[in-house]
């Protein structure tokens, strides 16, 4: 069965490019434009196998989303990757403390993204 990935980014370009790449490679992809919409989907019962989120977004940023998602039942060990232009170590530490599984700096090639997803999603 295809693994489900929740993709969160305020850029339509990013959402489209990453979504298409993942779908071509057999993943089912759900998208959200910001952290708030992502939380709405998670609260509505969406249980993805992986969350990939941007950091700087309107309404609710990636760090807050990670914190809130980790607090939900069943999301404690779910892999959450950040995909952002932020590269500073301080921000990474903040993400790690919030519960992120990994930190990816944009742009990420299709092959690299799949390689990392396979590392955090065994059997994908």
């Amino acid at each position: 069965m295809a693994k489900t990935i929740l993709l969160v980014d305020d850029s339509v370009t990013m959402l489209m490019s990453v979504k298409n790449n993942l779908e071509i490679n057999g993943f089912k992809v759900e998208t959200a434009e910001d952290g708030l919409k992502a939380m709405e989907k998670l609260n509505a019962g969406l249980k993805p196998d992986l969350i990939i989120t941007d950091i700087n977004m309107p309404k609710m940023g990636g760090i807050e989303l990670i914190k809130k998602a980790r607090a939900l039942p069943g999301f404690r060990f779910m892999p959450i990757l950040t995909l952002t232009t932020e590269a500073a170590q301080g921000k990474r530490d903040e993400g790690k403390a919030a519960g992120a599984t990994g930190w990816l700096v944009k742009p990420v090639s299709g092959a690299d993204l799949l390689k990392i997803i396979k590392q955090v999603l065994p059997g994908a």
Partner: peptide, 15 residues
């Protein structure tokens, strides 16, 4: 693979 790379390159628009 090429399509995936094209999609990766388009991410520069966001950057």
């Amino acid at each position: 693979a090429d399509i995936a790379e094209v999609l990766g390159s388009i991410q520069y628009q966001d950057i």
